[in-house]
Amino acid sequence: MVLAVAAGCSSAPETGQWVGDLVTASDYEAVAGWVPGATSLSRDHAHSGRFADRIDAEHTFGLTFQLPLNQASVHALRGLDVEAWTYFSSLKSGGALQVQVWAHGPGQDAKPLYEEQLNLREQVTDSCHWTQVHRRFTLPDNLPGDANLRLFIWGNPSTKPVYFDDLRVKALE
């Protein structure tokens, strides 16, 4: 009886709360061999497993995750809750996780419909160890479902290596 009462008192999550949809998660282990030309994939440092994504003087951009918005979640995607681990080889390192939405199709403007970033330096206070980073992104209401969601790390520019691993992106309703 108590269980029925407790279950009856539960409510739906508020707008902007995670509802359980996992947009993507990557520890970069499955990327090796599947993505041709994945030169930013590195075995130098990894938070888990053997691989991490890397930006440095030769790799301005890391691997890109890309998926149409209407395939990213079974619910209307209102935002993203992003968490990952990063490793700065030096406090002179820098970089950001870029979150972008681009229009799909020919003749579209050459600029994103939406763009924000998680500036890694704002959350990393020390070098030579792994730091968990986190940010929530709120997407505009007017994005078309066939627009492409893109996520990648970017070294603006980073001359000292930055490693990125164990990315988890959850849908916000």
Rank of each mutant, 00 (worst) to 15 (best):
E83M: 09
I55Y: 08
F51M: 10
T60K: 06
K111T: 10
S90F: 04
G94H: 00
K92V: 08
T60V: 11
L63D: 05
P106S: 13
S73M: 05
D53L: 03
G107C: 03
S73Y: 00
G62N: 00
D56N: 12
S89N: 10
F65N: 04
Q108S: 13
V74P: 06
S42T: 01
S48K: 09
G95D: 04
R50S: 13
F61N: 10
E83W: 10
G107E: 00
R50I: 13
R50F: 09
T86Q: 06
F51R: 02
A57Q: 12
G79E: 11
S93C: 07
S40Y: 06
L113D: 06
T60C: 02
L41C: 03
G95Y: 04
K111L: 05
Q66T: 15
K92A: 13
N70T: 12
Q66H: 11
R50V: 14
H47T: 03
V82A: 14
L91C: 10
G79N: 11
V101T: 10
H75A: 14
N70W: 05
A110D: 01
Q71A: 15
P68G: 15
D109W: 06
G105L: 03
V101H: 01
P112E: 11
F51T: 07
F51S: 08
L41R: 03
G105A: 14
F61C: 04
H75N: 14
A110Y: 05
A76K: 14
H104Y: 10
A103R: 14
L113C: 08
D56G: 05
W85A: 06
F88S: 08
V99D: 02
T64G: 03
G105Q: 06
L113I: 13
R78N: 07
G107S: 02
H47Y: 07
R43S: 01
A57C: 06
G79Y: 08
D56F: 04
Y114W: 01
L113N: 00
L41N: 04
D109C: 12
G62A: 05
L41T: 05
A76E: 14
L97V: 13
H104V: 12
A46K: 05
S90R: 12
Q66C: 15
Q66F: 12
Y114T: 11
L67M: 15
Q66W: 09
A52G: 03
Q100E: 14
A96I: 06
G105C: 11
H104M: 14
